[in-house]
Design a protein around this nucleic acid. Structure first.
Lengths: 242, 242
DNA sequence: CGGCGGCCTTGATTTCGGTCAAGGCCCCGC
DNA sequence: GCGGGGCCTTGACCGAAATCAAGGCCGCCG
């Protein structure tokens, strides 16, 4: 006979009660008891844009849930060329299990709110709770799908298709509840032009030119450098190559 | 192909006794009893280059281990542009868990030998044996790392760096025992020029030109169109951008 | 207020890789 | 042997995006 905990939120830590990660994120795989245990050793904190999240003393030994904001995962060549290899939105899980050192850097692209846990604690819970590992496995499979989608964009799309694809992806991630059939939508760009360039394998100038072209063609409005309104999702999709 | 039941040598099925997947592959996560169960419903078969592995009637409901050869994973845009998003070598596991339909195509790049299992059986075993899921999780994490490495190559490297990186990757995968410090090595290219182009986001002509350049610069020898000898691994590495 | 620095846009020019075209090599079947 | 097709190479030319360069906008701080 299962106890119906959720009716009175009985047993759910205050910290977690309104947390998105408990629903769509990895914490959804935990029972109230595990949640209490984890909440005791977790800490919530905010990070400003530009701050490194992996590799600095504070977080090298921890995993995190992204509660809000956008984290960029980057890789660099020795001569400084950089490529963004992933973006993490709430409620994604941050950190590479089973590896001490990762060749990937993580950096806050916007102001980011994180809920962090000691690495050891998560790995212990994973051993005890296959459900948790299962949840992480599924997120990893999704990230792999996304990475492969972007490989197509990087390898085979033109600059204008890349920028259109990027806007489409952001629109869908910033507002996950967005009606797929919606005609228009408006949002803040979580990335600078330089970041967008690093994401798409382009230069800043090319990104800027393609954005102006989308504007002059009335596919988007650029309300301010960081705020965009998509006038016509259909036309944007058609320009994304797909 | 008949799977025999004579369970000698500590209960390991004949089919599996000399199988690489039992050591480095996912079958290493199974105990002899599970191995016997799986062997009963598994079938070994060979596939010729060019044959689709996912999406055809035979394999849509199955997972496979790659026992030898190379499988390419591709994605296409609606207008026919194609990108290879992954290569699978022995003893990789083939198939996307937890999803009926994948937007990815798999095709034999060389003659490939597979050991296939019904999808349902694997998913049942995963539920019962967290070790199996764990092993698949780890392979997926590796594939994600590889995908992200290739994103850097696709987004930020020049044509000549791309071709050098490709040769390096193949050399390391074809001969996993290769001493990392080895000066030279020789191998068959598992891909045609067209495949290499689809992998690197280039055209056939550019791949061909870059290969000749590596040859005229004495970094490699092209013994025949499909067989290459790397004369100097160090120089090849330096040309790969890294 | 005025100057400075970060971020972005726009224009002029260059270059890398794509496109178009021709031909070579090799296997295979007749 | 001969012809055809698949695969690869090479050359000439072209164009998309990079590079180089200049200037605009805006918030911040002295």
């Amino acid at each position: 006979m299962t106890v119906r905990q959720d009716i009175h939120s009985s047993g759910i830590p205050v910290l977690c009660q309104s947390c998105e990660a408990r629903h769509r994120g990895v914490c959804g795989a935990l029972d109230p008891e595990q949640l209490v245990g984890l909440a005791k050793i977790s800490s919530k904190h905010n990070v400003e844009p530009g701050v490194e999240l992996i590799g600095d003393a504070e977080t090298v030994d921890s995993y995190s849930n992204v509660l809000s904001g956008v984290v960029k995962l980057t890789k660099s060549l020795s001569d400084g060329r950089q490529q963004i290899v992933g973006l993490q939105f709430a409620p994604d899980f941050l950190g590479r299990p089973f590896k001490v050192e990762s060749a990937i850097n993580a950096e806050a692209a916007t102001t980011v709110s994180l809920c962090s846990f000691p690495k050891a604690a998560i790995e212990r819970m994973m051993k005890e709770s296959p459900q948790l590992e299962h949840r992480l496995f599924k997120q990893t499979l999704n990230e792999l799908d996304e990475a492969r989608d972007w490989m197509v964009t990087l390898g085979r799309k033109s600059a204008s298709e890349k920028v259109a694809s990027f806007l489409l992806m952001i629109a869908r991630n910033i507002d996950p509840a967005l009606d797929p059939a919606a005609q228009s939508t408006t949002f803040d760009l979580p990335l600078t032009r330089a970041d967008i360039a690093d994401f798409l394998g382009l230069t800043i100038e090319t990104v800027s030119r393609q954005l102006t072209r989308l504007r002059t063609d009335s596919v988007i409005r650029i309300d301010s450098t960081r705020h965009v309104t998509v006038e016509n999702m259909g036309r944007l999709e058609r320009r994304s190559g797909a």
